[in-house]
Design a protein around this nucleic acid. Structure first.
Lengths: 241, 241
DNA sequence: CGGGTGGTTGAGCTTTCTCAAATAGAGTGG
DNA sequence: CCACTCTATTTGAGAAAGCTCAACCACCCG
C-alpha cells in the first residue's frame, strides 16, 4: 500500500521506474498502531522515517495547561517525519488519531537512495517544504480567519489532499476525527467547533457527521474559506534542474 | 557580510574550509532594498534564492479583507527563500520591514554546490526544515497562547535567534518593527498589542521602545511564554550520516 | 510649522471561551 | 435484548479576551 505515497509523489514530479523501485525497496518494516497513540516523541533521536499508509495522524505541540495545538494533519500517503532525516530529532510529537498502518524507512536507506538517485533527494526535500507551506496556511487561519472560516478551510484542504490519492471523490470523504480533534487543529474549543459546524450545515455548505464529510456547495465553501490550493503545489509536474 | 549566515550554519553543523568557500562563491550579486517593499511575490518562478545580510524581512499571507498574517520573521543571516530551490515558486510573499541588504544565490549555483559537497545539500535541507519548526511553534502561539504570552514568546525567540549572530547581547537587541508588525506576527490588533506591551512593561519583564527590546527578567519572560528553545535546534553541532 | 507615521487610551461590542448539563450512540456484560 | 458505561455531541448562559471605532498625543522630517 505504498501506492498512495507514489501517487502523492507523482502528483508533483515525474519519476522513473528505477526511482519508483528504489522507493519501494526502501521500506524495512511494516507496523500497525492503535488510535490515540503518540508514536514519535519530541527530542528522541530517530534513525528511520515513518510513512503513513492507512489512517490519520497529526503533529502537535502542547502547553503546560494541557492546551494542545495540532500543527498538521497527516493522511494516507504522507511521510510523517521525513524531516527527521535532516533534523535527527523532532521538535514536536506525532500521534495517531485513528488506527494506522505505517511503513518504516531507515535513514540509511534514504541516504543511499539520494546518493543513487539525486533527483529523489530533491523530491524528498520538496515534500518537507510542502509541510512548511501547509503550516503557513494554517498560521493564516489561526491568526486571521474566523472560526467558521477555519473549519471551512480545513475541509477544503483535506478534500484537495485526499483527492490526490482517490480517498475523496464526489464532494465527499471519510474523516474519522472527533470535534475535539477539529478544535485542536483550528485553535477553537469543542463547544465552538460544534456551533460553527452547525452554522456550516445550516448554510448548506458542508456536513460533518459520523466520520463523513459531505460538501454540498464547494464553491461557497471555498469562498467562505478563501481557499486557494496553490500552497499545495498540485499544478505539477515540476521539472528538477 | 555573509559571515552572519556562516555563523548560523556553524551553530548547527561543522563545515570545512572548502565548503565555506563554496558558500561564499555562490553569491552572484548584492542588492539593497528600501523598507516595506515586497521583494518576492507568490507564484513567480524563481531562479535564485535571497540571503538576508542586513535588516529585517518577513513572509506573509493575507486575506481579501486586507488582514495580514506574518508567518515568520527573517533576520540577518537567514535565507529568505532557500525553499524556492526545491519549490521553484513560493506560496507566500516576502517583504522588507526595514531597509535591507541581500545577496542573491542562483539556483544553478546551489545545484552545483550540492553536487560537489553533498553535506551542504543536507545542511541546506536542514535550514528549510528549521523554518517549518518555527512555523509550528507559531501555530502553537496563534492557536493556544494568550496575547501577552504570544508577544513574550516572540521576544524570546528573537533574542535566541539574534544571539547566534551576536546581534543580541546582555538581554537586549535592536528590533526596528512597528507595533503593527508585531500584531501581524502574533495575530493581534495593534491596539491589543499596545496594551499587552504595556502589561509586559508593568510586570517588569520586557520593554519594547524606539526599536529596542530590553529584557528585564529573562526567566520570568520565558516562564510566561513557556519558551523552550529546542525547536531552534541550537544544541548542535549535528553529525551528518 | 505642518503633515505623516506610529503610539496610547477610552468605550462599547463581538467572538470565542468556560462552566454546566442534557442528549445521543457505541460497545459490553449479564 | 437490556441496563450500564463511556465517549462524543449538543445546547444554554454568563464571562472574558480581544476587536472596532474614535480620538488624542508624540515625534520626526521636510
Amino acid at each position: 500500500m505504498i501506492e498512495r505515497h507514489l501517487m502523492k509523489v507523482r502528483a508533483r514530479h515525474a519519476i522513473s521506474d528505477a526511482e519508483e523501485q528504489a522507493i519501494r525497496n526502501s521500506v524495512s518494516e511494516y507496523r500497525s498502531h492503535k488510535a490515540d497513540q503518540t508514536i514519535i516523541r519530541r527530542g528522541e533521536r530517530l534513525h528511520h522515517s515513518t510513512l503513513l499508509l492507512e489512517g490519520l495522524m497529526c503533529r502537535y505541540k502542547d502547553l503546560r495547561s494541557g492546551k494542545r495545538q495540532i500543527s498538521e494533519l497527516l493522511v494516507a500517503g504522507d511521510f510523517a517525519d521525513l524531516h527527521s532525516f535532516p533534523l535527527k530529532r523532532l521538535d514536536h510529537d506525532i500521534m495517531t488519531l485513528t488506527p494506522c498502518e505505517v511503513a518504516l524507512v531507515p535513514h540509511a536507506h534514504i541516504s543511499d537512495m539520494i546518493a543513487c538517485f539525486p533527483r529523489l533527494g530533491r523530491i524528498f526535500w520538496f515534500l518537507t517544504t510542502l509541510d512548511a507551506a501547509v503550516h503557513r496556511e494554517w498560521e493564516l487561519s489561526l491568526g486571521q480567519r474566523s472560526g467558521i472560516a477555519r473549519l471551512a478551510h480545513l475541509f477544503c484542504e483535506l478534500y484537495a489532499r485526499l483527492q490526490i490519492t482517490k480517498l475523496a471523490e464526489n464532494q465527499s470523504f471519510g474523516l474519522d476525527l472527533t470535534q475535539t480533534d477539529l478544535g485542536e487543529s483550528t485553535g477553537l474549543t469543542v463547544v465552538h467547533v460544534n456551533r460553527c459546524l452547525k452554522e456550516l450545515r445550516t448554510q448548506g455548505l458542508v456536513t460533518f457527521q459520523s466520520g463523513q464529510v459531505t460538501i454540498h456547495d464547494l464553491t461557497g465553501l471555498r469562498r467562505l474559506a478563501e481557499f486557494d490550493p496553490a500552497y499545495l503545489y498540485l499544478d505539477g509536474p515540476y521539472e528538477i534542474d
